[in-house]
């Protein structure tokens, strides 16, 4: 009896450390973020729960600018990463060129911080691109894209990391689809482009959606890229949350945590939306 019970309990015991780590930190951080966002900071004698800090965010111009800016950068960089990543995956699968796959793997190994150094050295004023333009005998007249309010350097950073990530996830799927379906599509009269768009690309739709979820979530709430390559104004959500939380006026901590809570809501909301899309996709398959 005891042995049978132990056998039943064994999976729970085996999974416990990993589940405990994931669940306790997730719950601890989410509960604390929301309770502080709701104004519960007993160490500052703030013990009354209120929605004030959340409501004031949506009338705060700085927060609104920051939210739209972060959403725009995340949407643009995710969209471009998926489109360019899919194109690169197609080329990697079609060429079978191992060297190209190795080159594509390099940005994935780099951290965002190291990748930010590369983007800065390449695209900032007097960086490599500037010198190549000068070497070609042309005059550099464009604005400095690093630290600009357009967020171009941040988008480039996320593209540099995101597109190869999507490409490496899709390449094996595309290679299999090309082996099994490409010849049939060509025999039926499809051109190269329509074979890619209607036969090969749909086989990787699920991976594209999952990849897009991971990238969008990260790009929306990241700190490193925005903080070191983005402009001082507007700031991204992650940067704004930390700046607000660390203000000299300690009561602003509740506002900082409210911004952090909004980031969690966005992350979970996008996860739900994407998982619905994935389920619909699975149903279609």
């Amino acid at each position: 009896m005891t042995r049978r019970r132990l056998k039943k309990l064994l999976p729970c015991i085996m999974a416990f450390p990993a589940l405990a780590l994931a669940a306790s930190i997730t719950l601890g951080s989410v509960i604390n973020t929301f309770s502080e966002g709701l104004g519960y900071l007993p160490e500052l004698h703030m013990e009354e729960l209120t929605l004030q800090h959340f409501l004031s965010l949506f009338s705060d111009a700085a927060f609104q600018r920051s939210l739209w800016w972060s959403l725009r950068i995340a949407a643009v960089s995710t969209f471009l990463s998926v489109v360019l990543g899919a194109a690169l995956a197609w080329l990697l699968a079609a060429s079978g060129w191992r060297c190209a796959a190795r080159i594509a793997r390099l940005p994935v190994i780099l951290s965002y911080m190291a990748a930010a150094v590369l983007i800065y050295n390449t695209f900032s004023r007097y960086g490599l691109v500037y010198h190549i333009v000068r070497l070609a005998g042309l005059e550099w007249s464009g604005p400095d894209i690093v630290f600009s309010s357009s967020g171009t350097a941040v988008i480039l950073l996320y593209l540099f990391k995101g597109a190869p990530y999507i490409a490496l996830s899709l390449a094996p799927i595309f290679a299999r689809a090309m082996r099994d379906l490409r010849a049939a599509a060509w025999n039926l009269g499809a051109g190269r482009m329509s074979t890619f768009l209607h036969v090969i690309a749909p086989s990787g739709r699920r991976t594209m959606l999952t990849g897009a979820l991971v990238l969008f979530n990260f790009d929306l709430t990241a700190y490193e890229g925005f903080s070191y390559l983005g402009p001082a104004r507007p700031t991204a959500l992650g940067v704004l949350a930390l700046q607000t939380y660390q203000k000299a006026d300690l009561r602003a901590r509740a506002d900082g945590m409210a911004i952090s809570a909004v980031m969690i809501v966005f992350a979970l909301l996008s996860a739900v939306l994407f998982s619905r899309a994935l389920r619909r996709e699975a149903g279609r398959a």
Partner: peptide
Amino acid sequence: RLETVLYLPMLLPPVSVSMGIHKV
């Protein structure tokens, strides 16, 4: 269900988790 719990750290922003768990 359990897999979802294990994948949660991938979805939550590191900034929010670090700020949220610090006091805990």
